[in-house]
Design a protein around this nucleic acid. Sequence first.
DNA 1: ATGTATTTTAGCACTTGGTACTAATACCAG
DNA 2: CTGGTATTAGTACCAAGTGCTAAAATACAT
Lengths: 192, 192
Amino acid sequence: MKRTKKERQRLLMETIKENPFVTDEQLASQFGVSVQTIRLDRMELSIPELRERIKDVAEKNYENEVKSLPLDEVIGEIIDIELDEKALSIFDVKEEHVFQRNGIARGHHLFAQANSLAVAVINDELALTVKSNVVFVKPVKVGDRVITKAIVRGQDHEKNRTYIDVLSTVNNETVFKGEFEMYRTKGKGDTE
Amino acid sequence: MKRTKKERQRLLMETIKENPFVTDEQLASQFGVSVQTIRLDRMELSIPELRERIKDVAEKNYENEVKSLPLDEVIGEIIDIELDEKALSIFDVKEEHVFQRNGIARGHHLFAQANSLAVAVINDELALTVKSNVVFVKPVKVGDRVITKAIVRGQDHEKNRTYIDVLSTVNNETVFKGEFEMYRTKGKGDTE
DNA sequence: ATGTATTTTAGCACTTGGTACTAATACCAG
DNA sequence: CTGGTATTAGTACCAAGTGCTAAAATACAT
């Protein structure tokens, strides 16, 4: 016994958290105890067996994959869109979007929702943000549902620019607003 | 045999790709064949067994997790920081940051790097973005290494504001610039 | 129809990484 | 020495397979 049982179990927890892919046998030799001891430890700490641990990791991944697919294309979910006119999206603020310290959403998530909505509303192959002025009016908290509206204000056909206003609200209160100047390859109504 | 072997194997591939968590037994009953047939099919198609599949998903996840953890705290990696003075971060643009269509980075990733650097440079418990004006000067492509510098320009102690200029470059060429107005709880040098 | 080939099924031994349980030791304290 | 905790050993069993052999079913051709 190098150190107490408690100490070993503490290390065991850490080790497994750090690398869930480790077998009891590996753990046993690492801690210089028998496999049975490791099993007993796992039971006491209610740490599931290797396969379950792997499965857990895999399942977590799977959720994320499903979640990040639309989340990659547009931040938030588009609920209404009239191309080159306006668009509406909602975005539920979760734990992973906020500062742990105070539960306030990181600015770039709100920006991302607004920006990707601005891209989406443009009826074109290519739409890029050129400039934007944004104001974070009021802190957004975890659990808030942010509703964002993008309205196409106008276009400069010569410069291939589209101007979009974006307004985000939570419970009808403005939390974020911004103006986006977007570049696009073809103007509204242009033919290929 | 409802349809040919080929057809079954095609469906088998799809089914497993869609849901890798399925056992041979489940597949057998789903396709109305014996477990052995499924095993043969998997061999011919060189699809690994359930546990291997799960492990693969888990391992893929693990990579991502390591990637997304620092990516959540600060977008990009901070390579130098002088609190309340300036900070420097690098961000390698990968496939997942760009539009598939043209390989150009989505604006909000550049914004996120700039924004999180602006948050990081502030030596305070709480730092929130109030306003920002940003310009996307030049498209950033996959593979580019974006170097972003944040410089604290000034403070308004009465309003608890800090003003930060951010400049991002790729190969010494400016690709993005922005001004950030940040809210902070305490001013530089203030004591608790 | 008969023969040959392909496909499918069955059965058995063996593998990993375990669980569940029992029993034997070892160690340490009073 | 006796008791209690900690550790180890050993057995039976499980899931979800692999690997292998062999039989049965089906298809296809002549």
